[in-house]
Nucleic acid binder design. Structure first.
Length: 233
DNA sequence: CCCTGATTCGC
DNA sequence: GCGAATCAGG
């Protein structure tokens, strides 16, 4: 895979939205986590909290000059943002339910007397597809991208139903991918158990996913539930 | 162990 | 420019 403009845009977007390099990597596909990080840096994307780069000059109790394990005389080029200060813990504004008071006045009694053209209320035909997805007609296409982000984007908070559940983004090679519920439902999630090594599911769900191959001619045991069958929870 | 991002360096 | 290998902290 190569870094097409499109893929680079995706990378930028996800990186800025705070997805981890791993997530971005398998979202894009065809690239490794390292590739994503490498590309991000080459693009000059802002670095993010790294576990390995907490502070700058942590001179330990080494009395003598510490042996310079320096691999390379790093170019002194450095941003003027010299925050040599003793890493004061930034006053992290707790994400409390504190509504931004600076929010532009709500359009409560918005004097709509302006010349806004009446948004012709056309009859909308909306149907619900499998899984609860809304079907859109050709004319229902939204503008490709909502106009400039109104405010700082905050990672979507998981809905209450899904809290603590295993979501699509949580899946890795060692997490059971057995779906719980049905796509489109508010509480749809994945099993999330430790995987049965070598399989995409945990031991229990492997038992559900795989049937032993029986010798020809033998009578089939209890038929498994058909996929479209009664919902089992 | 798993994860994370940063950096280096051969290609 | 690319990304595997490596490093190093959580």
């Amino acid at each position: 895979m190569s870094w097409t403009d499109e893929r680079i845009d995706q990378l930028k977007g996800m990186w800025e939205r705070g997805l981890t390099a791993s997530q971005i990597a398998d979202e894009l596909g065809g690239v490794s986590r390292n590739a994503v990080i490498g590309k991000a840096h080459r693009l000059g994307l802002q670095s993010r909290p790294s576990p390995v780069k907490a502070n700058e000059a942590p001179r330990k109790t080494a009395a003598a000059a510490p042996p310079p394990p320096v691999r390379k005389p790093a170019p002194e080029v450095e941003a003027p943002r010299t925050v040599a200060a003793p890493v004061a813990p930034a006053p992290a504004p707790s994400r409390a339910p504190a509504p931004a008071p600076t929010a532009p006045a709500a359009p409560a009694a918005a004097p709509a007397s302006d010349d806004a053209p009446t948004p012709t209320p056309q009859p909308r035909i909306i149907s619900v597809g499998p899984g609860g997805f809304l079907r859109q007609g050709p004319g229902d296409q939204q503008a490709p991208i909502p106009p400039a982000p109104p405010r700082r984007l905050v990672p979507a908070k998981p809905s209450a139903e899904i809290a603590g559940k295993t979501s699509l983004l949580d899946l890795t090679e060692r997490i059971c991918k057995w779906p719980m519920g049905h796509p489109g439902e508010p509480d749809f999630h994945f099993c999330g158990e430790q995987v049965n090594p070598g399989f995409p599911y945990c031991v229990e769900h492997c038992g559900r996913a795989y049937q032993a191959q029986l010798p020809r001619g033998t009578r089939r045991p209890p038929p498994p539930l058909p996929f479209g069958g009664p919902r089992v929870r």
